[in-house]
Design a protein around this nucleic acid. Structure first.
Lengths: 161, 161
DNA sequence: GACTAAAATGGATTATAATGGATTAATATG
DNA sequence: CATATTAATCCATTATAATCCATTTTAGTC
């Protein structure tokens, strides 16, 4: 069964909460019992991952205290992940509260329409305009990459087909 | 599960005290029973760590007396950590008093709004403007890094995906 | 060493925001 | 077209943060 796929358009309520579709809620409850981690991405969207997925992302850090004492780069990395992540849970009505600082960061205002996008390991919440731009960016990149691949295929050498 | 995450905006009272959110208080009481160490960072913010985390940061310094006798660099390091750190405790209403010298250093004035930021091993108290700048700095770095990664992905060679 | 003033501490109150449930509206399905 | 399902709104309740006030402690002065 495919998890965390597709796109939903839905609205953020007056209190900054989002009602997730039954499909998405089922994906989360199946994976982590509704315990999720919200995380602000540099792309300008809010990712929501099952807790175990997020822990896997952060498992690498050993002896964090000793490193933090001596390295500003390391402190900044801890600060980014700490400040930009927050554990949340999905309510029994399928709602999640988006922390205010995250909403501002992602331009997701109470009362506005957003896109809920599946990313296979979780979902992302996008401001509508930003999502349209992101689609363009993804497509432009894929097209450019394809063009280059075609050009390279014209050159002599060991070809794939 | 996840400790010391997210961002809170809150205000410093007339006496230079800060009320921490119940979540943060729970993180501290779980780790160290409310015994914390405040520490001024070169970044211009006040860090608050559980006592054991701070001890872990400083445990690496072996034979300090012998080193201090011969090294100005070492004396200065000891002096910095000594002068810029102070043990405090969280009251049963979840309040902490910020030492006056630390408040001045971090531009955290009585009556002002600050950001309480989770950094995974503890929290940091930021002056509002400085925090906005720090976010910009972190994002600018992440964005630049992402751009370079995207550019590299266009080049021929063994790609990740 | 005692008294006074200032500051710091702890607790209680009030105002604001967040939460959960229920109702209504909209959409999709048969 | 009727029904079922889902989304959105509204409202009551709870929880939280900020302010205020009383008490205690500390420092300074006589």
């Amino acid at each position: 069964m495919l998890s965390f796929c597709g796109q939903d358009r839905c609205s953020v309520d007056a209190n900054g909460r989002l009602k997730l579709s039954p499909k998405v809620v089922a994906d989360f409850t199946g994976k982590c019992g509704g315990q999720v981690v919200m995380h602000c991405l540099p792309e300008g969207a809010i990712a929501i991952y099952p807790e175990e997925i997020y822990l896997e992302m952060r498992r690498q850090e050993t002896l964090p205290a000793a490193k933090a004492a001596n390295s500003m780069v390391f402190r900044r990395s801890m600060r980014r992940f700490g400040a930009m992540s927050s554990p949340e849970s999905i309510s029994n009505q399928g709602r999640v509260t988006l922390p205010q600082a995250f909403r501002e960061y992602a331009a997701v205002n109470p009362g506005s329409e957003v896109f809920v996008v599946g990313v296979e390991i979780g979902i992302e919440i996008w401001n509508t305009e930003r999502w349209a731009e992101e689609i363009d960016r993804m497509n432009e990149h894929a097209r450019e990459k394809g063009e280059r691949e075609m050009a390279a295929d014209l050159l002599p050498g060991d070809n794939i087909q």
